[in-house]
């Protein structure tokens, strides 16, 4: 493993986590959460856990973002915090 790469991804992870929780638009929060899942997928591929990374790329970044956006569209985009 390459620890410089590791540290860069980890810092981006914290940044995207904070952004996903601070954005007031729920659609934007869902999309940023998709980016977070992709970064985690990169981190796992870099740790050598290829099966876990594959699952996260299919599940976390694909399906969970889609179902979250489906919920946002059928409820509301507005959020107070």
């Amino acid at each position: 493993m390459i620890w410089q790469f590791d540290i860069i991804i980890l810092i981006f992870l914290v940044v995207t986590a904070v952004i996903a929780l601070r954005v007031k638009d729920l659609l934007g929060a869902s999309m940023v959460f998709g980016i977070y899942s992709f970064l985690i997928c990169l981190l796992w591929a870099e740790m050598g856990a290829v099966d876990v990374a594959f699952t996260e790329a299919a599940v976390g970044a694909g399906v969970s973002t889609v179902i979250m956006i489906a919920t946002v569209f059928s409820t509301t985009r507005r959020s107070k915090d």
Binding site: D51, A53, F54, A58, G62, V63, V66
Partner: peptide, 17 residues
């Protein structure tokens, strides 16, 4: 290779989505 039932199943479901 990397893969298996969970990953392939999710991808097949995503194709219908």
């Amino acid at each position: 290779s990397p893969g298996g039932g969970f990953q392939g199943g999710v991808m097949l479901g995503a194709s219908y989505i």
